[in-house]
């Protein structure tokens, strides 16, 4: 009854001095977004706005709809038969749910990194160039420049610069995941969606990826799903807590972890969740 869900952007936002989003519009904004798989609702009335050039974390118990929400932002849910979406979702101020939306163009602006790293079984270079070729960039010199730049940004360049033509599957798990991040940023998206990017990795690699995210934060708007509370606390500026398809609470991360307003949020972040 006292769920403060459907309230958009929390009031504190205006006071948030470190936020650059005060002048620019939010990168992603949803309003009353509902989604169901074959009539089984997975998201209910989700309204939130993701500020630009910040890291926003989505947390919540398994099956609460984090991945589903994330996949709304680049319309990957289109691939699943029987999905119905209602409500609004805007990226860069543009509605993305309509029929006439250029989904391909949207996905070039909203990159995605998956939980299970999924490099193409080709050379590292071919992986990196894949998105560029889709954009019509045929110039090899230019391609190589962007490949290097993106691999550097993903902190992978030094490890792979001598074996760009080797198969990407020869890389270690962590390297593969960083390659996927590099591949995603090679096409210069504005937003990067990450679905538990470090869940299958060891602590050291996880740390490297976290550092990477903090680096990328300067240029990209990042939305990350994580099960790791410390991780959310360490890297995100804002955190949304989802429960049973609803956004229970969405606030600055520090607040969520120190003064949550909802009992369920408190139970979850303190690990007392049953």
């Amino acid at each position: 009854m006292e769920t403060p869900t459907s309230r958009s952007i929390p009031a504190e936002d205006a006071l948030d001095s470190e936020s650059p989003s005060r002048t620019s519009p939010p990168a992603i904004e949803t309003k009353d977004l509902c989604l169901s798989y074959d009539e089984a609702p997975a998201l209910r009335d989700v309204s939130l706005s993701v500020p630009e050039r910040q890291v926003t974390a989505l947390i919540g118990p398994s099956g609460c709809g984090k991945s589903t929400l994330l996949r709304c932002f680049n319309r990957m849910n289109d691939l699943i038969p029987g999905v119905r979406v209602t409500g609004q979702c805007r990226v860069g101020g543009q509605d993305i749910l309509g029929d006439g939306v250029d989904v391909i163009g949207l996905r070039k602006q909203v990159g995605m990194v998956f939980q299970r790293s999924n490099p193409f079984p080709m050379s590292i270079r071919a992986n990196m160039a894949y998105g560029l070729k889709l954009q019509g960039l045929r110039n090899r010199v230019e391609q190589d420049r962007i490949v290097e730049e993106s691999l550097r940004a993903a902190a992978l360049w030094d490890e792979v610069k001598d074996r760009l033509d080797r198969n990407a599957l020869e890389l270690s798990g962590g390297q593969q995941q960083r390659l996927c991040i590099a591949r995603a940023i090679a096409i210069r998206p504005r937003i990067l969606l990450m679905d538990e990017p470090a869940s299958a990795l060891d602590p050291i690699t996880t740390m490297r990826i976290e550092e990477l995210i903090l680096e990328l934060r300067r240029d990209y708007t990042i939305v990350i799903v994580t099960h790791n509370m410390q991780q959310a606390a360490r890297i995100s500026d804002r955190t949304a807590f989802l429960y049973l398809g609803e956004v229970v609470e969405f606030d600055r991360t520090s607040r969520i972890f120190t003064h949550p307003r909802d009992q369920r949020t408190e139970d979850y972040v303190t690990g007392r969740f049953g």
């Binding site: 319309r75 289109d78 691939l79 038969p81 029929d99 989904v103 391909i104």
Partner: peptide, 9 residues
């Protein structure tokens, strides 16, 4: 062809 997104012309 509904599985997947709308194709280009």
């Amino acid at each position: 062809l509904r599985r997947g997104h709308r194709a280009r012309p």
